[in-house]
Write a protein that binds this DNA or RNA. Sequence first.
DNA 1: GTCAAAATATGATTTAGATCAATAAAATTA
DNA 2: TAATTTTATTGATCTAAATCATATTTTGAC
Lengths: 233, 233
Amino acid sequence: MVGIFNKKDCNNCDECNIKSPIFSILNSKDSEFLNFDRYSVSYKPGELIYKQGSSYTHLINLTSGLVKLYLEGNQKELITRICKPFEIIGGSGVYIDNKHHNSAAAITEVNACFVDVKRFKEIIRKNALFAEEYIKIISERRLYSFERLGSVMQKQMPGIVAEAIIYLSEKIFDSARFDIQLSRQELANYCGITKEGLIRTMKEFKDEKLITLEGNILEILDGKTLHKISALG
Amino acid sequence: MVGIFNKKDCNNCDECNIKSPIFSILNSKDSEFLNFDRYSVSYKPGELIYKQGSSYTHLINLTSGLVKLYLEGNQKELITRICKPFEIIGGSGVYIDNKHHNSAAAITEVNACFVDVKRFKEIIRKNALFAEEYIKIISERRLYSFERLGSVMQKQMPGIVAEAIIYLSEKIFDSARFDIQLSRQELANYCGITKEGLIRTMKEFKDEKLITLEGNILEILDGKTLHKISALG
DNA sequence: GTCAAAATATGATTTAGATCAATAAAATTA
DNA sequence: TAATTTTATTGATCTAAATCATATTTTGAC
């Protein structure tokens, strides 16, 4: 339903692997083993990739587009992370219960590559450098969760929203001017506030000439002040 | 200042290693290598074990007592986890920057064992099972951070406090009746609310006969309702 | 054992942000 | 293109929880 094999974007795993921090360290033999039955799926904006609570057999390597990871609970959703190409997603429970502990949905058009968990685990056992790289990845994510827990709990709206804008600019789009692919509701869900609160706070930033916002195009005018607001909370 | 070598509690690493999920899988050779210059330190209640932002050379194996891990920021502190014996602490940045990303302090009398990071990393490279076990540990913690992010952001005071009481009862003290070693302020810091809010919410629970609370001794009378409050938020 | 300091408890007030309500603007569909 | 639905925006109101103020109890020092 949601996925088709997409030959155009994926005729050769090597092309992707080079760009992936973790897969790029594999030698050709391990790489071949891992990619033996790897397959590609494409998603349209908004489509669900996997659902919190469901079990899985594959890790997902995002090869193009943006994905949101989110926690569902009590009719609210909290976006925990925005993923961009060559991140591995869907493996948070891989050594615990093989269950997804969050949900994932496509923000833009997405192509993703499915890697068998058993093969992945086998390589982890055989290849210490690969294991180490994987440890690095999950450590980084843990620190990121940490930071977010700290921000979202201790800051108030202006601080959280400033942080989110900086995050999009610096970590996702790598530009002071960008199309915020997310809807207002989604951005609010990332901040852990309501859409009205988000809109009002962004309006303030606009009035104070910290940003411009026309439709979905956001530009940071005064990054310094924005950083200050984010840091002070 | 804070630490002395405590011979009474620690004359033989094997005794501790047996009880530790990760160190127990080491063979005697690796174990000997890892423990070569391992040393023990004891702390009094309230004493700082390490400080957020500082760098480190050792992982800490908690051998007795309770430790709080907390994030410091904007004159508030947020307790992210309570640790009990045979957990490894202080290694969240071990594969990133060798910096502590949180602070740790003793809640009770604490004995802790310091393991050299270099040796630890060497074993990770040599011993795939050890690496795998370490991956399990950090994965579990990541999922725990996840859960907490979800709760603390989406629930309101009664839900959060109920969850905290259940956590202490089921995960830390393993009993329906226990001495909550933490001060009210600390418990509030764990919940991400003010001490007044915590006290009022606990009073409500008391009035509704869900718990008894005399001084620091808390007893859960109606765990079922408490679970319901926690789940509904 | 007395006194000082700290921790706990409770009431009164304030406030940030949620909720509710109503347009306005986009995006989809027919 | 018009009609319909969805998304964005703005204003008015409400509320949970923070803050402030003040007792009360507990703890620790002398």
